[in-house]
Design a protein around this nucleic acid. Structure first.
Lengths: 230, 230
DNA sequence: GCAAAAGTGTTAACTTTACACCCATGT
DNA sequence: ACATGGGTGTAAAGTTAACACTTTTGC
C-alpha cells in the first residue's frame, strides 16, 4: 500500500465468519493454519488487504479463494485492533460475516486446495487462533439479532425450500422453538414467499410444498418502509 | 507501530461522530481543518491510532482532546477503507459515534484549543472533508436504529430531565411526533425512571417533574433478558 | 397399518393507537 | 386573565400466543 507520510503503520487484514446451514444445524467454515503463528490451529478464513483493494473487495476475494462461492451475503461486522492481538506486529483486522448456501455443493469443493478446511458445528468449535473466538462470538450475536428483522435467513437455504426447513433454520439460529401454525401464518402474511408448483421428493412422509423468497418484492416493499420482522 | 513483517501497510485513524442535543435539536461536533488536505474544510474529529493503543483507546483519547469530555457513550460504528479515500496514502479509518451531554458545559470549553470547533445542527451541515459525509450518514442511521431498542437517549440529556424533554429528544432523533400520553405511559411502565423530588424552575408555565434514568436497574434487568424498546 | 412430518383456525391475552380536558405557573 | 406547557384515562383496533387434529406419503 502507498504510505507516503510519517504516521504509525499497521497491516490490515480481513477475517470472515462464514456461516452455512445443513440438516445438522449451523456451521462455520474454519481453516487449519499451515504457518506460524498458531501453526496447526484452526482459524477464520482471511488475509491481508492488498494495496488497491477496498475492504469489501478483500473480504469477497478471500471468500472466493476459500469457498469458491461468489454470490454470498457479506456484511462488515466489527474491527478488532488490540495492539497485541497478532504476535507478528500491529495487525488491525476488519471482520466480516457471510452467509452461504451449503446446498450449493460448489462451496465445499474449492475449500480443499492445500490447507485443511472444515465446516464445524457452531456448538463445538475447537480452540481458535488469535482473537478469532471473540470475532466468531460477535458474528453469531449479530446474526441472531439481524435474522429477526431482516430476511437474511434465506441466504442460508437452497433457492427453494419448505416452510419447515425455514422454521428449523430460525429455531436453530435463535436457539428456541417456534409454534408451527403461528410461524406459517406470520411468514405467509408478509406475502414474500412465492409458492412454487414443486414438492419435496424422496421423503417417507407427506411431501411439503416448496417456496421461493421473492427478493424483488422485498426490495420494493423495503424501499417503501416495510419492515421484515421475525 | 511495530510492523516487523512484509505485508502491505496502511495508516489507521479513528474518526468520531459526536452527537449532542440542546433546545435547538441534534448537533454534531465538527472541526475546521488547519492543514492540507482539505485545509479550511470541516471534518469529523479524529486522528491516527498510536503504536500501543487499541482502537477504542484512540477514539476515547481523540474525544477527550477535542471535547474535554471523559465519560461519554462511545461505540464503534464502521470501518471505511476505500483505497483513495485519503489523498495522502492508504488510510483506513475506524469510525465511532459518541453521545455527549451538551448540558455539561465542560464539553464546549475545551473544543476551542487552536482549531475552530463547532456544534452544527445535523440538518444543515457544511461540505465535509474526505468521506466524512458518508461516515456521518452511517452514524445518524445507527443512532436512529439504536435509540429504539437501547436506552441511549439518556446519554444526550442532563442527569435529570423532564418527560417532555425526553419525548422531544426522541421526536428529534426519530424525526416523527409521538403521542404524549402513550409515550409517558410506556416509558413509566418500564419503571426505569426515578422520580426525583425536584421540579423544573424559571419556566412560565406549570413546572414539570424531574426524573433520572436508573442505570443500575437497567443493567440488572438487561442481564435478565429485558429489552428496552422505544 | 403405522410412522413421520405436512397442513390447517379459533380464541383469549396483551399491546398499541387514538383522542381532550383540567392544572399550575409566569407575565 | 391569558398563554404555555404539564399532567392524566379509556376504549377500540390490532397483534401475539396458545393450542390439537386430519392428511399424505413411504415403508
Amino acid at each position: 500500500m502507498r504510505t507516503p507520510f510519517r504516521q504509525p503503520q499497521a497491516s490490515v487484514t480481513v477475517d470472515c465468519v462464514v456461516f452455512g446451514s445443513d440438516e445438522e444445524g449451523l456451521k462455520v467454515l474454519l481453516i487449519e493454519r499451515g504457518v506460524a503463528p498458531f501453526k496447526g490451529a484452526w482459524a477464520l478464513p482471511g488475509g491481508f488487504v492488498r494495496e488497491n483493494e477496498s475492504l469489501d473487495e478483500a473480504a469477497r476475494r478471500e471468500l472466493r479463494e476459500e469457498t469458491g462461492a461468489t454470490s454470498v451475503y457479506l456484511e462488515q461486522l466489527y474491527t478488532f485492533g488490540e495492539p497485541l492481538r497478532d504476535p507478528r506486529g500491529r495487525v488491525v483486522t476488519v471482520a466480516y460475516y457471510a452467509l452461504v448456501k451449503l446446498s450449493d455443493h460448489r462451496v465445499l469443493q474449492a475449500t480443499t486446495d492445500a490447507r485443511a478446511a472444515a465446516w464445524m458445528p457452531i456448538g463445538k468449535l475447537p480452540r481458535l487462533a488469535f482473537d478469532h473466538r471473540q470475532i466468531f462470538d460477535s458474528a453469531l450475536r449479530r446474526l441472531q439479532a439481524k435474522v429477526r428483522y431482516q430476511p437474511i435467513g434465506f441466504e442460508l437455504l437452497p433457492r427453494t425450500f419448505t416452510l419447515s426447513q425455514l422454521q428449523r433454520l430460525y429455531e436453530t439460529v435463535l436457539e428456541r422453538t417456534l409454534d408451527k401454525r403461528n410461524f406459517r401464518k406470520k411468514i405467509l402474511a408478509m406475502a414474500l414467499l412465492i409458492e412454487t408448483d414443486r414438492m419435496e421428493r424422496f421423503v417417507s412422509h407427506r411431501a411439503a410444498r416448496l417456496y421461493r423468497f421473492d427478493q424483488r418484492k422485498y426490495k420494493a416493499l423495503e424501499s417503501k418502509g416495510f419492515n421484515f420482522e421475525l
